[in-house]
Deep mutational scan, measured.
Amino acid sequence: MTTFKLIINGKTLKGEITIEAVDAAEKEKIFKQYANDNGIDGEWTYDDATKTFTVTE
């Protein structure tokens, strides 16, 4: 398992979430669903070196 981080830079929601997953593709799906469930629609980036997804509205 690898630890992945999501950084949220939303208009109404900001924060960080850290979760373990098998791979980045699995985690991306979970993070995007979390963002969608919380009304966050923005630009996504991924840094493989730090295993960090960022979504910015």
Rank of each mutant, 00 (worst) to 15 (best):
M1C: 15
M1N: 10
M1S: 07
M1W: 09
T2A: 09
T2G: 05
T2M: 11
T2L: 12
T2N: 04
T3Y: 10
T3C: 15
T3L: 09
T3K: 08
F4T: 02
F4Y: 12
F4I: 11
F4P: 02
F4R: 00
K5W: 14
K5Q: 07
L6T: 01
L6P: 02
I7S: 00
I7Q: 03
I7W: 03
I7D: 00
I7H: 02
I8R: 00
I8C: 15
I8L: 08
I8A: 00
I8N: 00
I8V: 11
N9L: 11
N9G: 04
N9I: 15
N9E: 05
N9Y: 13
G10I: 14
G10T: 15
G10Q: 03
G10K: 03
K11D: 10
K11E: 12
K11P: 11
K11I: 15
K11N: 12
K11R: 09
T12Q: 08
T12C: 15
T12V: 12
T12I: 12
T12H: 12
T12D: 12
L13W: 15
L13I: 13
L13N: 12
K14H: 14
K14V: 14
K14A: 12
K14P: 09
K14T: 13
G15D: 09
G15K: 15
G15Y: 15
G15R: 14
G15P: 05
G15M: 15
G15I: 15
E16V: 11
E16N: 04
E16C: 15
E16Q: 05
E16K: 05
E16M: 08
I17P: 00
I17F: 12
I17Y: 12
I17V: 06
I17N: 00
I17C: 15
T18W: 14
T18G: 04
T18D: 02
T18C: 15
T18A: 05
T18S: 06
T18Y: 14
I19S: 09
I19R: 01
I19M: 06
I19A: 06
I19N: 02
I19D: 02
E20N: 10
E20P: 07
E20D: 08
A21Q: 05
A21R: 04
A21H: 08
A21W: 15
A21M: 14
A21S: 11
V22F: 10
V22D: 08
V22P: 10
V22M: 10
V22Q: 09
V22A: 10
D23L: 04
D23T: 09
A24S: 13
A24Q: 13
A24P: 13
A25K: 07
A25V: 11
A25C: 11
A25G: 08
A25S: 10
E26N: 13
E26R: 04
E26C: 13
E26V: 06
E26L: 09
E26A: 07
E26M: 07
K27W: 15
K27L: 15
K27P: 15
K27C: 15
E28V: 09
E28T: 05
E28Q: 05
E28F: 14
E28S: 06
E28K: 04
K29N: 12
K29P: 03
K29S: 11
K29A: 12
K29M: 09
I30V: 10
I30C: 12
I30S: 03
F31P: 01
F31M: 10
F31W: 06
K32S: 05
K32L: 09
K32T: 10
K32F: 12
K32Y: 10
K32H: 08
Q33I: 05
Q33H: 04
Q33P: 01
Q33F: 06
Q33R: 06
Y34Q: 00
Y34V: 03
Y34N: 00
A35I: 14
A35K: 02
A35Q: 02
N36Q: 13
N36Y: 13
N36L: 14
D37H: 03
D37C: 13
D37P: 03
D37A: 11
D37W: 09
D37Y: 08
N38A: 11
N38F: 13
N38T: 05
N38W: 14
N38C: 15
N38Y: 12
N38S: 05
G39M: 05
G39R: 05
G39L: 06
G39V: 04
G39C: 12
I40P: 00
I40E: 01
I40M: 03
I40K: 01
D41L: 12
D41P: 04
D41A: 09
D41Q: 13
D41M: 10
G42M: 05
G42A: 06
G42E: 01
G42Q: 05
G42P: 02
E43Y: 10
E43A: 07
E43W: 12
E43K: 09
E43D: 09
W44Q: 01
W44S: 00
T45Q: 07
T45Y: 07
T45M: 07
Y46E: 00
Y46I: 01
Y46N: 00
Y46P: 00
Y46Q: 00
Y46H: 00
Y46D: 00
Y46S: 00
Y46F: 05
D47C: 09
D47Y: 03
D47R: 00
D47S: 02
D48M: 03
D48W: 05
D48G: 04
D48Y: 06
D48L: 04
D48C: 07
D48T: 06
D48V: 05
A49S: 10
A49H: 09
A49Y: 06
A49I: 09
A49R: 06
A49W: 04
A49T: 09
T50I: 03
T50H: 02
T50F: 02
K51E: 03
K51Q: 08
T52W: 01
T52C: 08
T52M: 03
T52I: 05
T52D: 01
F53W: 07
F53G: 01
F53D: 02
F53I: 03
T54A: 02
T54P: 00
T54K: 03
T54V: 05
T54E: 04
V55A: 03
V55Y: 08
V55F: 12
V55H: 05
T56Q: 07
T56D: 04
T56N: 05
T56V: 08
T56E: 05
E57P: 09
E57R: 11
E57N: 11
E57D: 05
E57L: 15
